[in-house]
């Protein structure tokens, strides 16, 4: 944390006193997310997420590769969540910071280890050819809660992505260029969405979707990822102050409703992107005529 962004005692006391009265600095309720804006496109698999002032960009790309020898019938999925000095001033590139490791682990657990994407469906020829899907998550601006924003960006990008179509006849493998045959979406089993909680004082005070200032004075946090089947995919409470079991159960109930809200936003974004794509194709047809 750069010296300039550190909070004064005055600010810390004000935020805590505010939370005791249920007031947050930006005027939202303790269980409110900030405004969420998801923009998909123009290419398939590109998602820009704005959660308040936190901005994240995710880009999905694919290439053909040899499957891992111990998993010959599966494709690969890799997540890259390298932090950048654009969002994190004073960051030394090359050395992963504690925060970077945490973000990377949570997203891996939620998306990769939980098999959100059907990797068996990515196999083209067992032992020989399979699709390798890369998700690059770029952090543009950090105003707190980069994990939730990154998860939304990655999931929406994966849902929006299209890979080239493939035909396998015996030994012959044909990968169709995207301008000859429409690319196909990935097969997604379930979509986990993360919700982060921050705890203050002795655990009595808590908020959802903490801002950067709130993150700086929190005494503990918890991240719950829930998918569209209402299953908890990840529950991470690493250190920080001890919490009552009741608090955890209450938080997971709240997380479930928040996840529904986020999922609706992602669906809207996908619908918007499809609309824009349709209008663009119509325009191109008219011009080419």
């Amino acid at each position: 944390m750069v010296k300039e962004l550190e909070l004064s005692t005055n600010e810390k006391e004000l935020i805590i006193s505010g939370l005791k009265e249920g007031i947050r600095l930006d005027g939202r309720g303790i269980d409110d997310f900030r405004s969420l804006k998801i923009t998909l496109g123009p290419e398939y698999g590109r998602s820009e997420v704005k959660l308040g002032d936190t901005k994240v960009l995710a880009k999905v790309s694919c290439e053909v590769a040899r499957p891992y020898p111990d998993r010959p019938n599966e494709g690969m999925l890799t997540l890259n969540t390298e932090l950048s000095p654009m969002a994190f001033a004073g960051l030394e590139p090359g050395r992963p910071s504690e925060e970077e490791v945490l973000v990377s682990r949570i997203l891996e657990k939620a998306i990769k280890i939980n098999r959100a994407v059907d990797v068996e469906g990515l196999c083209i020829v067992a032992n020989e050819l399979a699709w390798s899907i890369h998700v690059d998550v770029h952090f543009l601006d950090n105003d707190g809660n980069i994990i939730d924003a990154a998860c939304i960006a990655a999931i929406s990008a994966l849902s929006h992505f299209r890979r080239p179509d493939v035909t396998v006849i015996g030994e012959d493998v044909t990968i169709h260029p995207v301008d000859q045959r429409n690319p196909v979406p990935l097969s997604i089993h379930h979509t986990p969405i993360c919700v982060t909680f921050a705890f203050f004082e002795n655990g009595d005070l808590w908020v959802v979707d903490p801002s950067l200032k709130e993150e700086q004075i929190r005494r503990g946090d918890m991240i719950i990822a829930i998918n569209n089947h209402k299953e908890i995919c990840v529950l991470s409470k690493a250190g920080g102050l001890p919490l009552e079991m009741l608090t955890i159960i209450q938080c997971s109930k709240l997380a479930a409703s928040k996840v529904d809200w986020v999922r609706e936003k992602i669906q809207d974004a996908i619908a918007n992107a499809a609309e824009v794509e349709k209008r663009k194709t119509l325009r191109e047809i008219i011009i080419d005529d």
């Binding site: 004000l14 505010g18 009265e21 007031i23 600095l25 005027g27």
Partner: peptide, 16 residues
């Protein structure tokens, strides 16, 4: 800019 008022609600209001 440092700002202050009588209640937390007011401080938050002035800030915003």
């Amino acid at each position: 800019v440092w700002l202050s008022s009588d209640t937390i609600k007011h401080i938050s209001l002035v800030y915003n």
